[in-house]
């Protein structure tokens, strides 16, 4: 029938699900598109310049690193694209264009590849880059553009001089009521980083990821739930109702972006369901702790990074009891 053609002889199983790393990463990219479109509408086309530089430099750094070290090149799995997009999402639209390049280098080369590449990094590369840029060049990151008033053209090279405005989160930190309504906070009509402003559109992306079964509900729900409960129980200001304060905290800053896209990063979150709940609660608690008592107004990045470091222990502690587990016999008294 077959002439001399050879057949494959491999151990079972012989079939595989269609999902692979690339389809998952593409789904994440798709989930980020609504928030991106909103950012372009809000801040102007310069958003796309930041994004393009960030994504391109991430991919190039990964490619170069793997080429130089003669490792298999894995840029086609799109994970570098996701990292690049997330770095851009964490920068204001007015940022100088060399900043995302620095961020990409830190994220891809130092945080991801030096630790062994995809799946082996200890902390989330994009978040680590955000914190790195945030602490190294605070003045570059600090300038948030007031939405709609000054649309930035894609060719604005250095937009650092644009009048920056305080983010609602910074106002909350000072015990003031932000001059933005909760509804505006929810849809994203406020100053902030490119990808973090619209809670609504990030949630839509999150629902897409849930429906595609890319992420599970455990981390976002426990993360946001913990923040909501803590803020509701211990509001920082008496000038608004507790529930109003809770919604302001939920919809401002990088919380939504962090809970939906950052904390759910596979490599740096637990693999067990119960572990994911613990991890989410930890992220939420540390976020509120830093927002209330820390020096920064924003605590999400640090919270997630701290929990990232604990993932291995959470996995170990929440290891399920195997089917038919026989408990070790206790000594009879």
């Amino acid at each position: 029938m077959n002439g001399d053609k050879l057949v494959w002889v491999a151990p079972a199983p012989h079939v595989k699900h269609n999902d692979n790393s690339r389809t998952i990463m593409l789904d994440v990219v798709i989930a980020m598109v609504p928030a991106l479109v909103w950012a372009v509408y809000m801040f102007g086309f310069r958003v796309l310049s930041v994004l393009a530089v960030s994504v391109a430099s991430s991919v190039i750094f990964e490619f170069l690193f793997q080429k130089i070290l003669r490792r298999p090149v894995t840029v086609l799995d799109f994970s570098a694209v996701v990292t690049g997009m997330l770095i851009a999402f964490n920068l204001p639209a007015s940022v100088s264009l060399w900043v995302p390049v620095m961020g990409s280098f830190f994220a891809i080369v130092i945080v991801k590849q030096l630790f062994g590449g995809i799946g082996k990094n200890v902390v989330n590369p994009a978040l680590a880059a955000r914190v790195f840029l945030f602490t190294a060049w605070p003045s570059e990151i600090g300038g948030y553009v007031e939405p709609l008033s000054e649309k930035l053209s894609p060719l604005t090279v250095n937009a650092g001089d644009i009048v920056a405005s305080a983010t609602p989160l910074a106002s909350l930190k000072l015990g003031e009521t932000p001059d933005v309504s909760i509804f505006d906070l929810f849809i994203g009509n406020m100053p902030g980083c490119i990808g973090e402003v619209s809670a609504l559109l990030i949630l839509i992306g999150g629902i897409y990821l849930l429906l595609r079964r890319v992420i599970t509900w455990h981390i976002p729900v426990s993360f946001l739930g913990t923040v909501a409960v803590l803020c509701f129980l211990f509001p920082q200001t008496q000038s608004v109702q507790a529930y109003e304060f809770m919604f302001m905290e939920l919809f401002s800053g990088g919380l939504m972006l962090g809970a939906v896209f950052m904390a759910t990063d596979y490599a740096t979150s637990p693999v067990t369901s119960s572990g994911r709940v613990i991890y989410g609660i930890g992220c939420g608690a540390i976020t509120v702790f830093i927002r209330y008592f820390g020096g920064y107004s924003e605590g999400v990045s640090f919270a997630i990074l701290i929990m990232n470091l604990l993932v291995w222990y959470i996995d170990k502690a929440t290891r399920p009891k195997p089917f038919g587990y026989i408990p070790k016999k206790k000594e009879v008294k």
Partner: peptide, 8 residues
């Protein structure tokens, strides 16, 4: 080529 991405 394979790599665990820890998706769980």
């Amino acid at each position: 080529p394979s790599a665990c991405i820890r998706c769980g």
